[in-house]
């Protein structure tokens, strides 16, 4: 029996449910946080989305069918929560902005928990200009080095479509980096 299966069994028992969920959080919190953080870019937003994600997991854990791995399911919830959050924020707080990308750029510049150098800031700005799906695929492939097959399961998209998304994303990032920072030696 896998560790996840043991946790799931403990979650079904009301007397061990809370303890099991704490164990689950401690096992996946960092991976989920960084996945969300790369999507929303700002720490405060990432914290809100992580909380929403974990509450959603708690509320839906009874309906989880082991058709995919537990983490695949978590990743999917975190992805959906991130995209929903960005769309809501854009509508509520930034009615003047044209799209999510502008909100992300402002978010990135206002984030006090960004320690990157000039090159990393340019790269993140380039990523922020990508459409949601391409940004997601780029982050998962470039930073997390997730295999296309696993990504396909998480995002419920074909491997071919994911490869195409990544190809377009890399091209756009490259163009942005070249045009926005000539001082960076590529």
């Amino acid at each position: 029996m896998t560790d996840d299966q043991k946790i799931l069994d403990s979650l079904k028992d009301p007397s061990t449910r809370e303890l099991a969920f704490r164990h689950l959080i401690s096992k996946y919190k960092e991976r989920l946080y960084w996945h969300i953080r790369k999507m929303v870019m700002n720490h405060d937003d990432a914290d809100d989305v992580l909380q929403n994600t974990l509450i959603k997991i708690w509320n839906g854990i009874d309906s989880f069918r082991a058709e995919s791995s537990l983490f695949t399911w978590f990743y999917r919830i975190a992805t959906n929560e991130s995209i929903t959050f960005l769309n809501q924020r854009k509508k509520r707080m930034m009615p003047g902005l044209n799209d999510v990308n502008e909100y992300l750029l402002e978010n990135l510049e206002s984030d006090t928990y960004f320690d990157g150098d000039e090159w990393q800031l340019t790269l993140q700005k380039a990523i922020a200009t990508l459409p949601d799906k391409q940004r997601l695929v780029f982050n998962m492939k470039y930073f997390d080095e997730i295999k296309y097959e696993d990504m396909s399961e998480i995002l419920e998209t074909s491997v071919g479509a994911l490869k195409a998304s990544y190809h377009h994303a890399v091209k756009k990032v490259e163009e942005y980096v070249k045009s926005h920072d000539s001082r960076i030696d590529l």
Binding site: Y33, K38, L123
Partner: peptide, 15 residues
Amino acid sequence: PEFMKRPRSNPFRTP
């Protein structure tokens, strides 16, 4: 592309 050959470090941190 050239930028892909650079080291891929995480520029974000947490409190």
